[in-house]
Amino acid sequence: MSGWLTRTKQWIGSTLQLPDDLLLDLPRVTWIGSFLLHIENHKGLVKVEKKCISVRVYDGMIEINGDLLHIQSMVADELVIKGDIAQVEYIQQQGGEKK
């Protein structure tokens, strides 16, 4: 998606007072304490390991580091990750593609 389209969408969103995640297909991440992470609007899994889980999102990846991680459920656009979550990293890639 080119830059101007994104900007236009952002402008429409701000004018109509719509949440950005709906309009731009962006993920919404809810982190509860250190043990539960709720990711909406994900695009799939990239890596599943005990210490690291990578989730594909619209414009990049979300990498979760921690210990004893596991995915409780993956239903449609929702993902619930459990475990001792130490770090959540948003790795942005332009257009959702790897550089």
Partner: peptide
């Protein structure tokens, strides 16, 4: 290529539960 499997399942909107890695390049759900 286990992420591919997961990706395809996700595209088919198959609900998965309890995804854990049970070893190197191995995933269980």
């Amino acid at each position: 290529a286990y992420p591919v499997v997961l990706q395809r399942l996700h595209q088919q909107s198959v609900p998965l539960h309890g995804i854990t890695s049970s070893g190197d390049n191995e995933v269980q759900f």
